[in-house]
Computed example of a mutant assay.
Amino acid sequence: METSAEATVEFLLLEKYCMRRRAASPPPEIAVFQGLFPAPRGRRLALQSRTSEAAVQGKRPRDVLEDVAEKITGIADSISISPKIASDGDDDSNDGDEDVIPRLVELLRQSGDQLDKEIKKNPDLARFLTNSFSYNLFATITNSFLQRVAPSRAPITQQAQIAMTFEVTRRLSALDLQPMNRVMGFGAQYLQQNFSSWVHQRGGWERAFQEDDHEVQ
């Protein structure tokens, strides 16, 4: 039986992260985001099962989510993801699918209104995102994004990769090309497939972000 991504801690964390970003700098493009509503009973049970230690310490599950989302936001803010400056020889007019991902990743390194404007200025790219968007495409975009953010001398840490996954999910979900919940679901799935073992080894989401080991080596 398929499990809804909205019942996972990863999905709830992505919601909380987007809420924090929206509160800090609300772009009009994501005005349709209705906020974080009280979770259904199934969500509460899923979250409670992963935050039992915090509950013992008197912390509510959503307090834990807030703490983790705040930490992830700080890590994302500490990483430079500005787009490269295009040279005179750069050509963004290529139409092949092999050229779409690098172009899209560079656009995603912009933010807010500028990202949305650039996407809308490129009808082929907007059509590609609308018609071909799938989890596999999301994973390919995110993988490429993480590779371009990482410096050549050393990879970024697991904390930083997670933070960048949150950020690329937020930026994709803010585009008016796909339902937000679908993009967030893909983000939650990507986090589960790529980082759940590391998070589990560290003792869960709260413990995984207790230490400041996100700095680029």
Rank of each mutant, 00 (worst) to 15 (best):
Q57P: 02
N194L: 02
R127I: 04
M184S: 04
I75E: 01
H200G: 06
V100K: 00
F37D: 03
H200C: 03
V68K: 04
Q193K: 15
Q217F: 09
L129F: 13
K71C: 07
C18R: 05
F186D: 03
A55V: 13
E53A: 09
K121C: 10
L12E: 05
L177R: 04
V32Q: 00
Q201W: 10
S132C: 14
Q193G: 10
T51S: 13
N94L: 14
S196K: 06
E211W: 08
R60D: 13
S111L: 01
M184F: 08
V32Y: 08
V64F: 06
A174L: 00
V64Q: 03
S132I: 04
Q189F: 03
A24W: 07
E66C: 02
V9L: 11
P26I: 04
A54Y: 03
E6A: 13
V105N: 03
E10M: 01
S197M: 13
S78A: 15
A76M: 08
Q34V: 03
L172R: 05
L47N: 05
E53N: 07
R148N: 13
K117P: 01
P27T: 11
L13W: 00
V168Q: 06
S144D: 12
L115Q: 04
A69G: 10
L129D: 07
S111G: 11
I72V: 15
S87E: 08
F145S: 00
H214D: 02
H200A: 15
D113H: 11
A76Y: 02
V56E: 14
S87L: 09
Q114A: 13
Q57A: 15
A160V: 06
P123D: 09
A46M: 12
E106Q: 12
E10A: 10
